[in-house]
Design a protein around this nucleic acid. Sequence first.
DNA 1: CACGATATTGCACGATCATGCATGATGTGG
DNA 2: CCACATCATGCATGATCGTGCAATATCGTG
Lengths: 246, 246
Amino acid sequence: MLTRERKALLLDRLAAEGRLVATALAHELNVSEDTIRRDLRELAAEGRLTRVHGGALAASPTHRPLAERGALQTEAKVRLGRRAAELVRPGQIVILDGGTTHLALVQALPRDLRATIVTHSPTVAAALEPFERVDVLLIGGTLLKLSMVALGATTAEAFGRIAADLLFLGVTGVHPEAGLTTGHPEEAALKACLIRSAAETVVLATPDKIATTSPFQIAPLEAVTTLVTLDDRPAWLPDGVDCLAA
Amino acid sequence: MLTRERKALLLDRLAAEGRLVATALAHELNVSEDTIRRDLRELAAEGRLTRVHGGALAASPTHRPLAERGALQTEAKVRLGRRAAELVRPGQIVILDGGTTHLALVQALPRDLRATIVTHSPTVAAALEPFERVDVLLIGGTLLKLSMVALGATTAEAFGRIAADLLFLGVTGVHPEAGLTTGHPEEAALKACLIRSAAETVVLATPDKIATTSPFQIAPLEAVTTLVTLDDRPAWLPDGVDCLAA
DNA sequence: CACGATATTGCACGATCATGCATGATGTGG
DNA sequence: CCACATCATGCATGATCGTGCAATATCGTG
């Protein structure tokens, strides 16, 4: 039996019976208990069920709407998010910028991740609700409706007091000469603050953003530590910048 | 039977019958009384029930995770939200506390409302996205997963700098003697800050919160300007407090 | 086809959890 | 005050868990 097939069967069974018992399933499916435990652990990390001692129970239903909203994500963003989620190490302090791409990133994080996430996006913060072991630091400010992030002097000041390990930065343009750009002047200024507050800067760029520019510059390309894309590394990317293909 | 499953069953039974008898449950579930006692002890430690000699009684309601109660976006909350939304006048500065009831309030606001809304709940902030003419001031802080609101010194300080016209306050208990109460000490302290930051305080109370208490007091009943309920005005409500039936 | 990379599985190990029992303490009702 | 039920605690036992490791299968690529 295929692994994915077995996992699907586990979820079906869970939906039907409301609970799963590891030992019974191992015997029934003729695999070791280790394998079943592994399956359950992985499904739990995806938030599809709740792991308990001896088996698993159905996940609390409130966390479903998140999964549904995830359906509106484009394939590209989901892939970028998954790849980027692998960059987060346990215990790190991570700044998450706003935007649907980073929402996809959140959805790709393992449910049992232990980390501190700093964000000025209420949408991202709300999506972090199911992650019990993640400490969330919400940065306030005046909300910009267009991109749903907090802006303003207090926001910048708050980020100035933070030294994070990792920053996931949202941009609307990545260009050989213009560097990182976005469509709103205050947002650009704040994003520059974010870069200063983190040791490493990761930019997730869907193909439509590569080699394009928006009116307001955030920083030169050299400010980026890692660029995550779907395609191959652009030739014009500076040597100091890593490039990961999702 | 799985341990967690058994605990869930105990809570269900408690909700249905209002009390639990240890010996009877031990016999019924085919486990020793020690096990049942252990379960009850642990559930009591989590605040999900009140331990008494011989069994357990229902605990004061809902200082449970948002996830568990949020699932039921009940008719009651929608009605309360609709009634409360009528209290908001154009141009006002309004503080919105967290909680599903206030989420219902947001849904009931007119889409063309022009106002400033201040909130420390990312969930509420996210729900305000479609309101183009509403300015949203997001207050940051450390996010409490249980109720999904920002807490901490910076949060309180930020509210201290605000003078709002109207506050919609979330509580888990409205009681003639204990006053307004909630299930988390820091939350209670912050809610007291909110009251000081607003000229008028409105409390939306579903029937399960009326005449009940939670462990931590926010303020006496006199701090309330208007109480919005589903039923008639409670007799014990101080004279200075208005009461609206939704 | 050959080769390395990756995924999957089972096993071993020490750690943790759940359970029932014994014991002495505490509460309850007469 | 006594008899009895209930309780908390410590302990032993077996089940379950997570991790690291090795064997095998599968995949991708040249």
